[in-house]
């Protein structure tokens, strides 16, 4: 079971913070497209500058291959405390 997490304004826009998926698409870019397929506001927010992704709690750059059971988080610009 894979987990997809949204934080900050992304979670507010989507109306959810966590989703469990039985299977993941092959790549991070396809996962982004999948979760925003029926939500154009989320698609726009995910494409905004400064949005980063973390896979299994490590920041990743660019597109990457996904494997079963991973935890993928989409992180809007960090605000500090």
């Amino acid at each position: 079971m894979a987990r997809v997490l949204l934080f900050g304004r992304l979670a507010d826009i989507a109306g959810w913070r966590e989703r469990r998926l039985d299977s993941l698409p092959a790549r991070l870019s396809s996962l982004k497209a999948l979760i925003a397929a029926d939500d154009p506001r989320l698609a726009e927010a995910l494409a905004a500058p400064g949005v980063q992704a973390a896979v299994d709690k490590t920041l990743v750059r660019g597109d990457m291959a996904l494997a079963a059971g991973m935890e993928i988080a989409f992180l809007p610009p960090m605000s500090g405390g």
Binding site: P76, M78, S79, G80, G81
Partner: peptide, 11 residues
Amino acid sequence: YLKSRAPFWKK
């Protein structure tokens, strides 16, 4: 660091 770069989201 904590005020500007730490991974928090503040509302």
